[in-house]
Computed example of a mutant assay.
Amino acid sequence: MEITLDTLGKRQKATILDFDMDNVPLKLLEMGCLPGNQVELLEVAPLGDPLYLCINEAHIAIRRELAKEIRIEIRK
């Protein structure tokens, strides 16, 4: 099932499928946010934004608005 990263549940893992290169910063790509890589939602800030993620053992925080641009597939 293909969804976007902003809908991932806490401690849920997924595989990055695709994203729009025009809307995702180069810095995020350099940190491992690439198709085929695994992502896990570790925490959500108290007001729901930003999201704290683990992507290929790199811990990063991104805004929910940016997470809506990244398509994922839930790992079973």
Score class of each variant (00 low, 15 high):
residue 1 M to G: 15
residue 2 E to N: 14
residue 3 I to A: 05
residue 3 I to N: 04
residue 4 T to L: 08
residue 5 L to F: 06
residue 5 L to I: 07
residue 5 L to D: 01
residue 13 K to G: 01
residue 13 K to M: 06
residue 15 T to C: 07
residue 15 T to L: 13
residue 15 T to K: 12
residue 16 I to E: 01
residue 16 I to C: 05
residue 18 D to I: 08
residue 21 M to K: 15
residue 22 D to M: 04
residue 24 V to Q: 05
residue 26 L to F: 10
residue 26 L to S: 12
residue 28 L to T: 05
residue 29 L to G: 07
residue 32 G to Q: 04
residue 33 C to L: 15
residue 33 C to F: 10
residue 33 C to V: 15
residue 34 L to P: 02
residue 34 L to T: 07
residue 34 L to K: 12
residue 35 P to I: 08
residue 35 P to H: 08
residue 37 N to E: 12
residue 37 N to V: 06
residue 38 Q to M: 11
residue 38 Q to P: 04
residue 43 E to R: 15
residue 45 A to P: 00
residue 45 A to I: 00
residue 46 P to E: 14
residue 46 P to V: 10
residue 48 G to F: 00
residue 49 D to V: 03
residue 50 P to I: 06
residue 50 P to F: 07
residue 51 L to Y: 10
residue 53 L to W: 06
residue 54 C to D: 14
residue 54 C to I: 11
residue 56 N to T: 13
residue 56 N to V: 10
residue 56 N to S: 15
residue 59 H to N: 11
residue 59 H to D: 09
residue 62 I to E: 00
residue 62 I to F: 00
residue 65 E to N: 12
residue 67 A to W: 01
residue 68 K to D: 05
residue 69 E to P: 04
residue 69 E to C: 12
residue 69 E to N: 14
residue 70 I to H: 02
residue 70 I to M: 05
residue 70 I to A: 04
residue 70 I to R: 01
residue 70 I to P: 01
residue 74 I to D: 01
residue 74 I to F: 06
residue 76 K to H: 10
residue 76 K to I: 07
